[in-house]
Amino acid sequence: MSVTDILAELVAVPSLPGRPNDVITGLIRERLARDGVTAIELPGPEGDRSNLFATIGPADRPGIVLSAHTDVVPTEGQTWTSDPFRLTTDGDRLTGRGTSDMKGFVACVLALVPEFAALPLTRPIHIALSYDEEIGCRGVPHLLARLPGLCAPPDAAIIGEPTDMRPVLSHKGKRAVVAVIEGEAGHSSNPSAGANALYPAGELLLRLRDRAAALAASGPFDQRFDPPHSTLQAGVIRGGSALNIIPDRAEIEIEARTVPAQSPDEIIDGVLADLTRLGGGDGGRIRVSHRELSAYPALPPPDDPALGELLTRLTGHAPIASVSFGTEAGLYRAAGIPSIICGPGSITRAHRADEYVLGSELAACCDMLRQLGRQLTAA
């Protein structure tokens, strides 16, 4: 079956995050089984979704992990020129949700499985597929926790996010939270009869603005990134229901993106300390709390250039030092597995209407994987 046919099957499954994923995992498990490969299902604590892990070759020897997530972002609010969950072809362009991010890579891996299985591998190829990456890399930590019981410690992981088939060495870390401020409702004709939650929310926003400015002015700085410092921003604020009602609740969605020298926790914990100080205000009528949205560590630049050099040989492209978007690579690295990012498609097409991948990009990815398989047959 061609890589395009496999991609069409994958795109046809609307594998949205935060929902049961048995359809997409069942499809992949069945395809692997037809090629003689058994995929191990690793249920997450949610009970209705799972990671998948499969090994081709000797599991007791260090090998290479091919890593991807199977969930895709929703299409609501976007205007597509075709059905987002039906692969459409226009010349070299293949359009559909997840084609770039990142079912194109998954399709390439699955297309190469028969070739991998036919090789006399002396080191294994592992296929690791996670869930709920798009809502905060929630699935892969459970996969990584199970890894020591499934295989020898891997030599490396290739995370196939869309990079135009250019190897990427590092990326920023991230933590996102919702700050919640609760007051007391009342009629706006007597503002003192209630506790307006918007005012402490405004104070928090000003403190957050000042913290963001301090990061831009004082660093730490890392010139491999654009911008070359950690960032902090409020992206969404919700509060109030009507002009004549004292607003009793406000929520602010906040994110920090950090260079490898700085932890996202360091920045967000400071913001949450500001939030805590607002609690008890207005005569004790203001209450504060927060909810975690997502978190993943930065992928620091590698200490050893060997993995970057390998991907340069496999792709013909010199590595890119860094990107500002995040991936699961930082979590693999934190688990002790050297990691690099490289896959078909472009991040500029991800999460947008008419997302697409080029057939030529899929062919280049398959060629990279084919060469990787040959590398792993050497003694």
Rank of each mutant, 00 (worst) to 15 (best):
residue 1 M to N: 01
residue 2 S to M: 01
residue 5 D to M: 03
residue 6 I to L: 10
residue 7 L to P: 06
residue 8 A to S: 15
residue 15 S to V: 08
residue 22 D to Q: 13
residue 26 G to Q: 11
residue 27 L to W: 09
residue 31 R to C: 04
residue 31 R to S: 10
residue 33 A to N: 03
residue 33 A to H: 09
residue 34 R to K: 12
residue 35 D to Y: 05
residue 36 G to P: 09
residue 39 A to K: 07
residue 40 I to F: 00
residue 43 P to L: 05
residue 43 P to H: 09
residue 49 R to Y: 12
residue 54 A to W: 02
residue 57 G to I: 06
residue 59 A to M: 00
residue 65 V to T: 09
residue 65 V to D: 14
residue 73 V to W: 00
residue 76 E to P: 00
residue 77 G to R: 03
residue 77 G to S: 03
residue 77 G to P: 04
residue 77 G to T: 07
residue 83 D to K: 05
residue 86 R to G: 06
residue 91 G to E: 06
residue 93 R to A: 14
residue 93 R to K: 07
residue 94 L to W: 07
residue 95 T to G: 02
residue 100 S to R: 08
residue 105 F to S: 11
residue 105 F to G: 15
residue 114 P to Q: 06
residue 118 A to I: 11
residue 122 T to Y: 00
residue 128 A to G: 11
residue 130 S to A: 13
residue 131 Y to C: 15
residue 135 I to E: 00
residue 135 I to Q: 01
residue 137 C to W: 07
residue 138 R to F: 00
residue 142 H to K: 04
residue 144 L to E: 04
residue 148 P to H: 00
residue 150 L to Y: 02
residue 151 C to K: 00
residue 156 A to Y: 00
residue 167 P to N: 13
residue 173 G to H: 13
residue 176 A to V: 03
residue 180 V to Y: 00
residue 181 I to N: 08
residue 186 G to T: 08
residue 186 G to P: 09
residue 189 S to Q: 01
residue 191 P to N: 04
residue 195 A to F: 10
residue 198 L to T: 03
residue 199 Y to K: 01
residue 200 P to M: 02
residue 200 P to K: 08
residue 206 L to M: 13
residue 208 L to S: 07
residue 219 G to T: 11
residue 219 G to A: 12
residue 222 D to N: 14
residue 222 D to Y: 09
residue 242 A to D: 06
residue 242 A to Q: 10
residue 247 P to K: 04
residue 248 D to A: 13
residue 250 A to L: 05
residue 258 T to R: 04
residue 261 A to E: 11
residue 263 S to C: 02
residue 264 P to D: 11
residue 273 A to R: 15
residue 278 L to R: 05
residue 281 G to F: 09
residue 289 S to G: 15
residue 290 H to R: 11
residue 293 L to E: 14
residue 293 L to Q: 15
residue 293 L to D: 03
residue 297 P to M: 14
residue 299 L to A: 06
residue 302 P to Q: 10
residue 303 D to M: 12
residue 304 D to I: 01
residue 305 P to S: 12
residue 306 A to H: 08
residue 307 L to V: 10
residue 311 L to V: 07
residue 312 T to H: 10
residue 314 L to W: 07
residue 315 T to F: 02
residue 317 H to I: 00
residue 317 H to E: 14
residue 318 A to L: 13
residue 318 A to Q: 15
residue 319 P to C: 06
residue 327 T to S: 15
residue 335 A to Q: 06
residue 335 A to M: 12
residue 338 P to V: 10
residue 339 S to N: 05
residue 341 I to F: 05
residue 342 C to P: 09
residue 358 L to M: 09
residue 360 S to Y: 00
residue 365 C to L: 06
residue 368 M to N: 02
residue 369 L to C: 08
residue 374 R to P: 00
residue 374 R to I: 08
residue 377 T to F: 02
residue 379 A to S: 12
